[in-house]
Deep mutational scan, measured.
Amino acid sequence: TTFEIRVGDLRITLHNADEEEIRWAEEALRRGIHADEILRTLEERRR
């Protein structure tokens, strides 16, 4: 599944994310964390 998060002009697309990952990514985007860093962190958490 694919889920797109939008916060203002910012956007990130997550693939195969669970609800916790989606909530975490949305909050991180709101705090101004760059999408590349969010994706990198999620990848590390999945390992």
Score class of each variant (00 low, 15 high):
46 R>P: 02
16 N>I: 05
18 D>V: 12
11 R>A: 13
9 D>Y: 07
17 A>V: 14
30 R>E: 07
30 R>Y: 09
38 I>A: 01
25 A>D: 00
23 R>E: 14
17 A>H: 03
3 F>L: 15
9 D>N: 10
21 E>C: 02
38 I>N: 00
39 L>I: 15
20 E>L: 11
13 T>P: 05
35 A>T: 11
41 T>F: 12
42 L>H: 02
34 H>N: 14
18 D>T: 13
39 L>Y: 15
18 D>M: 07
20 E>D: 10
39 L>P: 01
47 R>H: 15
7 V>M: 05
21 E>D: 09
32 G>Y: 02
45 R>W: 15
1 T>N: 12
17 A>E: 02
36 D>Y: 13
36 D>F: 10
29 L>F: 06
8 G>E: 08
47 R>P: 08
39 L>T: 08
41 T>S: 09
9 D>M: 06
43 E>N: 04
39 L>V: 08
38 I>F: 03
8 G>R: 02
20 E>Q: 12
35 A>E: 12
41 T>R: 03
33 I>V: 15
43 E>D: 09
43 E>F: 08
5 I>N: 02
22 I>Q: 05
45 R>C: 04
13 T>M: 09
41 T>P: 00
39 L>N: 05
29 L>Y: 06
12 I>D: 02
4 E>W: 03
45 R>D: 07
4 E>D: 10
21 E>A: 04
43 E>K: 05
9 D>W: 04
18 D>E: 05
25 A>T: 07
47 R>V: 15
36 D>P: 11
10 L>F: 09
7 V>R: 01
13 T>S: 06
29 L>Q: 02
24 W>H: 01
2 T>Y: 13
47 R>L: 15
15 H>Y: 14
38 I>W: 00
28 A>S: 14
37 E>D: 11
36 D>A: 04
37 E>G: 03
22 I>F: 06
34 H>I: 07
7 V>A: 04
35 A>L: 07
41 T>W: 13
40 R>K: 15
29 L>N: 03
17 A>Y: 05
32 G>D: 03
14 L>F: 04
6 R>H: 11
5 I>V: 10
25 A>G: 03
2 T>S: 14
44 E>G: 03
7 V>K: 02
28 A>C: 09
37 E>A: 03
24 W>R: 01
45 R>T: 08
43 E>I: 09
20 E>F: 08
4 E>G: 00
27 E>L: 11
30 R>I: 14
40 R>I: 12
39 L>C: 15
6 R>Q: 14
9 D>L: 02
39 L>S: 06
45 R>M: 13
12 I>A: 02
37 E>P: 01
12 I>C: 04
17 A>Q: 01
27 E>I: 06
45 R>Y: 09
18 D>F: 13
36 D>W: 10
44 E>A: 05
32 G>V: 01
27 E>R: 08
3 F>H: 14
19 E>Q: 13
43 E>R: 04
4 E>L: 06
25 A>H: 00
5 I>A: 02
17 A>C: 02
11 R>I: 15
4 E>T: 06
19 E>N: 08
37 E>C: 05
12 I>N: 02
19 E>H: 12
40 R>T: 13
17 A>R: 03
8 G>M: 03
22 I>V: 06
41 T>N: 10
36 D>R: 06
14 L>N: 00
40 R>Q: 11
